[in-house]
Design a protein around this nucleic acid. Structure first.
Lengths: 141, 141
DNA sequence: GTATTTGCAAATCATTTGCATAAAC
DNA sequence: GTTTATGCAAATGATTTGCAAATAC
């Protein structure tokens, strides 16, 4: 379906369309679960055991640099990734570290005032708390 | 000036007021530069070479858990810390990774809707771009 | 006095790198 | 054919942990 689109996007970014790189990109486009690099490696390698951990990491770096993939850093935990599709914000679970999409909402002008000489590239909302799975089991910690 | 306040806050969190822990907390309260754990260790140890790297890390973890310190994760780089004082948002520089405070702005209700069964603890704005120092030198990358 | 914290060095975890081989363009 | 990417294993960087000795309460 978008095999061609992926190839095109990679080409335009000066990246060759190798099976390993394609697989990472396709996987991220098909899953909005914000997987970690390790999870992506597992999944991609299970379908076609031709990739290596290092290559997965290198490809993720390349894709982030090319602007095709977004990296979400969470405290103390491994980074998580998602294909840049429709704009959205993120909800990060305090308990399990999962990252979920939250419907996009334009940050109003007043919030952008105090930026001074800084050059703004993007502005994202990060919600934190307990995800729907963890909320009921709230007890420890 | 707030030596007493620090001691009190630690006590209320069930944390003993050791010189090393106190030093970390006092340093964070006196500097809003969002230092990394390594920077905090350096600074604290320079004034009084009695602490160790491990203890600094452990104390930072304890202070974050106690809710006295906030941890800011940035992609690929070391975590940065700040004492929870006045509420504020963060600006993270794409180039140098520095984290700066941005005046607080209450996120309007509409943005808080799509949260479903999730339990919201906090909501923060993350601005990304080039800091005032890096903006003029924009060239490479 | 007792429970917590420290410091050390070793361990772990996520991620990157060097380099020879293989594949994309 | 040339340039870029791969896979491996080893390196790095950040952070954590085990444990005996020290210290806050």
């Amino acid at each position: 379906m978008d095999a061609k689109a992926i190839k095109k996007a990679l080409g335009e970014s000066g990246l060759r369309c190798t099976p390993q790189r394609y697989a990472v990109m396709a996987f991220l486009m098909a899953h909005n679960s914000h997987p970690t690099a390790a999870e992506i490696f597992e999944a991609v390698n299970q379908m076609d055991p031709r990739s290596s951990r290092a290559t997965t990491y290198n490809n993720l770096r390349d894709l982030v640099q090319a602007g095709l993939v977004r990296e979400v850093a969470a405290e103390g935990r491994a980074a998580r990734f998602d294909a840049k599709g429709m704009r959205h914000h993120h909800f990060i679970c305090d308990r399990c570290g999962s990252v979920e999409d939250v419907e996009w909402y334009d940050v109003p002008r007043p919030a952008l005032r105090a930026l001074g000489k800084r050059v703004l590239r993007e502005c994202e909302l990060i919600f934190r708390g307990l995800c729907a799975k963890c909320a009921p089991r709230y007890a420890s910690r």
